[in-house]
């Protein structure tokens, strides 16, 4: 009977999400313990209990420095990386669903390049009216400006077809990349700062970074979940979706804007981190299916787990810290080639 099997499937779906959430939480605790000063998971949990719930007994007799390392140094960075991973994965799911293109990701629309250009400009000009957050602000503005430029370029009668969006995104991204190269050329000795920022990193991230990205990602998640079923229906194409009562124009604009804002927030605190937005949605679609009501939360959790693990590897396991953007591209790229190739072969034989 359909209703019974439906119910069973929903329970197992919920179990899967809880399992993923638990796994991410465990990874975060383990990761917090790893580093130059090793701290056991029970000590980490003790410090968390003391800080969050005020149970000071838990850290009685513990060295002061441990609590400082956990709370002030490692946790903000780990949470920022987890939130950025979740945000990029979410944006990837939404862009792929909206553009009906499994290869779309936050880069496809040029949004990441816009953020990179904004950041490069701020580094080149040496702007610091907001201190360290000047880069964030300019990256954010760059991303948002790029989004509107791409939307304007691709609009026809107020409609944005998936193909014209992707083409406009690629064109704008190409122009911005040239702009970044030009800035690097002009920058002379400043060039290494720009190059390093573009490679992406979570070094020295603060609670403010974590909070800012978390706020925007959570807002994005709420908007995405609200429209999850509309996204499913829009996979049928605009005409069929429209005839099923979905206002495709409004939904597309809402979701594009929300996903771009989430991307902008992520890129502005972390630099360019590729492949998370491409890889995670693919993997999760393979594991849980294409239904966005499940795909969105599952991808957010998997993205968080993936990026926090990757960041912990570069921070604690490798002898020298490799920029996280480089690491994700080096591991994610070949893996994606493998997935893509298998899919191609599957298509031919299937």
């Amino acid at each position: 009977m359909p209703p019974a099997s439906q119910r069973r499937r929903q329970i197992s779906r919920r179990a899967l999400l809880w399992g993923l959430a638990l796994a991410v939480a465990c990874l975060a605790v383990l990761a917090t313990g790893m580093g130059y000063i090793p701290i056991s998971p029970s000590q980490v949990l003790g410090i968390l209990g003391a800080k969050l719930l005020g149970w000071e007994d838990l850290i009685k007799g513990m060295e002061e420095v441990l609590s400082h390392v956990v709370w002030e140094v490692r946790l903000p960075r780990i949470l920022t990386s987890a939130v950025v991973g979740a945000g990029l994965a979410l944006a990837g799911v939404v862009f792929q669903g909206l553009l009906l293109n499994p290869l779309a990701d936050p880069f496809t629309l040029g949004v990441s390049s816009g953020a990179a250009f904004g950041a490069s400009l701020s580094l080149f000009l040496g702007l610091d009216f907001l201190g360290a957050y000047t880069i964030c602000l300019l990256a954010f503005l760059g991303a948002v400006a790029t989004l509107f430029a791409v939307l304007w370029l691709s609009s026809l009668d107020g409609q944005h077809s998936p193909t014209s969006l992707i083409l406009s995104g690629v064109i704008v991204a190409a122009i911005l990349s040239a702009g970044i190269s030009f800035l690097k050329y002009l920058a002379e000795e400043q060039v290494s700062v720009i190059v390093f920022w573009l490679m992406g990193s979570f070094v020295g991230r603060s609670w403010l970074d974590a909070g800012f990205t978390a706020l925007l990602s959570a807002g994005g998640l709420a908007v995405f979940i609200y429209h999850a079923r509309d996204l499913n229906i829009m996979c049928l194409g605009d005409r069929a979706a429209g005839s099923l009562g979905v206002d495709t124009r409004r939904v597309r604009l809402t979701l594009l804007t929300a996903a771009s804002l989430v991307t902008a927030a992520c890129v502005s605190v972390s630099g360019i981190i590729g492949f998370v937005g491409l890889l995670v949605p693919h993997l999760m679609r393979f594991l849980v299916g294409p239904d966005h009501r499940l795909l969105l939360p599952a991808s957010a959790l998997a993205g968080a787990g993936l990026l926090l693990s990757a960041d912990t590897i570069t921070r604690a396991a490798l002898p020298h810290e490799v920029p996280i953007g480089v690491l994700t591209a080096l591991i994610g790229g070949p893996f994606f080639c493998y997935v893509f190739r298998r899919k191609q072969l599957g298509m031919r034989h299937g």
């Binding site: 293109n101 499913n232 049928l236 194409g237 005409r239 679609r285 294409p290 239904d291």
Partner: peptide
């Protein structure tokens, strides 16, 4: 949508939904 259904010429689907899921979309 409650009174008018449309089947356009392009009925391709880009994501791996099952047939039952797609037909259920008609109940949206």
């Amino acid at each position: 949508a409650a009174s008018l259904a449309l089947v356009p010429q392009d009925f391709s689907l880009h994501f791996p939904f099952t047939v039952r899921e797609v037909v259920l979309m008609g109940r949206h």
